[in-house]
């Protein structure tokens, strides 16, 4: 057999849900009378799934808590059969789990997809590049006219999620070891970020999430603030939101929109 044929067969043995015929294994691999080749390759096949399921366990601890080890392992195996790892970092193997759960929802807990998305975002920001936040006086000296010309560069360690269910309370219940409430359907936004080496998340109002998503895509401050027009006092709401973004370290630069877009381009190029 060529090297390519050998590797194709070994890969099939590891990843196929169906057992590979013993004759094909014995034709390629050598064993001993007391330890035949089929048993020897099975050592690798068993470790293949165990290793990947273990990586998923580390990334999705609350999903494991909710489902329990056995149900999580069954879910993970089903997921991995359809979504094998395509990244050199085994920690990336879970990046499609939330999408998988949306395609194959748990009938009793359709919010598990949202929980997985939240846990995946927490995993992502943990490893995101560092960036120095601007100081509390970053907006000082901006006159109203400058608002239309100024944009924000947000921390690369910040994610804004808009989910189909309130995942943050579910996460909290599981973290605290409390029985979770019933799923709470309806659009729900969460900000996930890293401060120092710690990861945090907090629920967001939907208009604030829209404002943050606009900021992340290069909107000017005027457009960002326009997201709050539905509030009773839009200016106060925008002011409070910008103040909290500063306080949490989510803003790393206040700049001309073209500079914001250049910073975004650089960030995309680094990925």
């Amino acid at each position: 057999m060529t090297l390519a044929e050998t590797q194709a067969l070994f890969h099939e043995i590891l990843t196929s849900a169906e057992p590979v015929a013993a004759e094909r294994i014995e034709a390629c691999f050598a064993g001993t009378p007391d330890h035949p080749a089929s048993e020897r390759v099975a050592i690798y096949a068993n470790m293949y799934l165990w290793r990947l399921v273990d990586a998923l366990r580390e990334t999705f601890p609350q999903l494991v808590r909710y489902l329990g080890d056995e149900r999580f392992a069954a879910l993970a195996e089903d997921y991995l059969r359809r979504n094998p790892s395509d990244h050199h970092d085994v920690g990336q193997v879970g990046r499609r789990l939330a999408a998988f759960l949306r395609e194959h929802p748990d009938p009793e807990r359709p919010d598990l997809a949202d929980l997985a998305e939240l846990e995946w975002a927490r995993h992502q920001v943990f490893f995101a590049p560092p960036a120095e936040p601007v100081g509390p006086d970053a907006f000082a000296g901006l006159d109203p006219a400058s608002f239309s010309r100024t944009g924000l560069v947000l921390s690369p360690a910040l994610r804004v999620l808009v989910l189909d269910h309130a995942a943050a309370p579910l996460w909290r219940s599981l973290e605290d070891g409390e029985p979770p409430d019933a799923p709470s359907p309806g659009a729900s936004a969460v900000a996930v970020w890293r401060g120092g080496f710690d990861v945090f998340h907090t629920p967001l109002a939907l208009d604030e999430a829209i404002a943050l998503e606009g900021a992340a895509s290069g909107d000017s401050l005027a457009t960002i603030c326009a997201a709050f027009t539905g509030r009773e006092d839009p200016a106060a709401a925008a002011h409070a939101a910008l103040g909290s973004w500063l306080a949490e370290g989510w803003i790393t630069a206040v700049a001309q929109p073209r500079d914001v877009l250049a910073a975004l381009d650089r960030r995309v190029a680094r990925r």
Binding site: F10, H11, T15, Y48, L52, S85, D86
Partner: peptide
């Protein structure tokens, strides 16, 4: 790794001239 998929294991090679 095989066809872009990683098995995250250290699989042995056949020790041949081709390898």
């Amino acid at each position: 790794a095989h066809r872009g998929q990683y098995v995250h294991d250290l699989l042995p090679l056949p020790y041949t001239e081709e390898s």
